[in-house]
Design a binder for these strands. Structure first.
Lengths: 195, 195, 195, 195
DNA sequence: AATGAATGAGGATTCATTCAT
DNA sequence: TATGAATGAATCCTCATTCAT
């Protein structure tokens, strides 16, 4: 694997584990056993690494969202999709933490765009459920429910640092479903789960 | 007001506003228009300031929790209490953010204890509601609901950066109630709100 | 003497001797036997030191020029004034060198202003001599003479690195006078010189 | 054109435009769209490039000076020669700037030799004029005039950054002539100019 | 000839912290 | 209590240079 990719991978792992603010560019170089100069040959600095990871995440999320047709998707397909989405977010979780603690001038424009995308996607999901007469929530409460889903989707990233990522992703998805459940006209048919 | 207290107040405000990681001890001294030496006369460093604020928060939360008798409290009293609790958390909100981004060796033991307290309190609240036959949730789902309440309670701190703190606190409380609502046998009678 | 002033003095000496581009901020700190941190306590960086020296020079030159009344000044007074002016330029000579080699974004706005001042002063000096019927040069040639005086005044700074500053200043002044001499209607009466 | 020559040409252009101190070896490679390794294949480093340019300049100036017979040259031939000489200096002007700002250990031995050559040539020119009874200046003043011519010849390089090189060269030559003019017994007959 | 990844020393700058007064 | 100059370690970053291919 190329050095550039190794830098991205290692940085992502370290950022996720210790928080991007606690990792210096020298830490990354040391971990990779390359010289600081080499790191700067591939990226202008820590910020550019973060920007790149941010772009990757945006791309991955964007691709997933673009592929989904909320009108046409089956329930079990939705479940698979939701797992994929959460898995991506978990993979880049440090971005979502940075959003709250890293000062704006530093590159989190991308992460902010992501937030907006995810937030509006959450709202659209609920609308789609309602059009199918699966969901019964009045206007304002629907917005609140969307907010809650969104917030929970993010905060779960920060706290569920359990065993494997797969397990965590499944728990996260179930957590979100459990928020919607009480408002459904019937239980969703989610293959691969017993919710 | 004594210098020591002014340091605490100003630090808290700056930490909440910019994130504790983005504030240096010189920033605090400059804001207070005191010398760095004076700051260090009162506190060994930034960490000790944070520790002190953390203790204050623990104390405030602890006092609130100790005063509440979940078995005996009325519904409108609970509402008042919930607002107080959230207000305290909002007041020290940087602690909850730091929890996720500041590396463990630095002083967040206190904040972690806080988390545990709040988490178990959330669970107890639900238990109490159930004993009063107000809530209908089965065992595992109750735990999940408690988790959700707890996570939402925290994440709201990070995102609801609206107008006044009072408004934010009220919104936060309603947000939490809306999570419990679908599982109640009857609507709660919360004075001062139309939930 | 205060540390701030010592930094300015030492920097000026080192800049003049080795060229500002060849002196690092650590060099200055080492020469003064202070820590790099201390240097940065007094000045944000090398650039701010240069800016300050530039301001000092502008001020010194500005004061001299403001005091001179070209119409009323006697010949021997002019000689004294010219020596003072050249002495100041020599004292801050690195500024004039930087002008040619340091890229514009870095702070030499001040030095550029200085140039303009000195250039227009040179032209005014010749005009005054002509009004007194001491100088006989036609329009375009007068401009060229002014240019020559100005250029020579500067380039002498860079090359006359002889013995004492006093001697150098005197040589510089005579050099300038010798440029004007052939065009005078009579020899100037300059006390303290045998030109 | 071979790579080696392209490196020299591009370096010269960049050094003249931005000052050699502000150009890194990577800048040169980037401008040429070659790899840094390739640059170092042809030259050991920036210094060797400068040395080579310096040698070229020395050679060009040396050839010009060697060809001139100050005793026998006609006035109009001298004018042509002077333009050639200044053109060469202008072409390699960064060398003359470096002389003043680049620390000695780095390669400007050559440039210093050049200076000496040019300075003594200036003196010889005046001597030749005098032998032909064209110039009337006494001993010490003749030296001073030579110095002035030399200094002005150099400083003009740094400041006359006007339109085309041809125009600049002509202006420079006229500037030098104007310094000598007042001391001539009769006007020189310089073809191609109206001095 | 040419590439481009890699090195490492050095320079700029920040900041928590100390200390004499 | 309070000052503010001083320290020094840590960090970020640049750049001349090397080297395997």
């Amino acid at each position: 694997m190329g050095t550039r990719q190794r830098i991205l991978d290692t940085s992502l792992a370290m950022f996720n584990h210790h928080g991007s603010a606690n990792i210096t560019s020298l830490d990354i170089a040391a971990e990779l056993e390359i010289s600081p100069g080499n790191l700067y040959y591939h990226f202008k600095g820590k910020e550019e690494i973060i920007n790149q990871l941010s772009k990757e995440c945006e791309l991955a999320v964007g691709t997933l969202l673009a592929r989904v047709d909320l009108e046409a998707i089956s329930e079990s397909e939705y479940w698979v999709f939701l797992l994929s989405l959460l898995r991506v977010c978990l993979h880049y979780r440090f971005l979502f933490l940075d959003l709250q603690t890293v000062a704006p001038p530093q590159g989190n424009r991308g992460a902010q765009r992501l937030m907006k995308q995810l937030h509006s996607f959450t709202a659209h999901s609920l609308e789609a459920l309602e059009e199918k007469a699966l969901l019964q929530v009045k206007g304002e409460q629907r917005e609140q429910l969307a907010d809650n889903l969104f917030l929970l989707g993010l905060s779960w990233l920060c706290f569920d640092s359990g065993d494997s990522d797969d397990k965590a992703v499944e728990r996260g998805a179930q957590r979100l479903i459990s928020l919607v459940n009480p408002h459904l006209t019937r239980q969703l048919n989610l293959a691969g789960t017993d919710q």
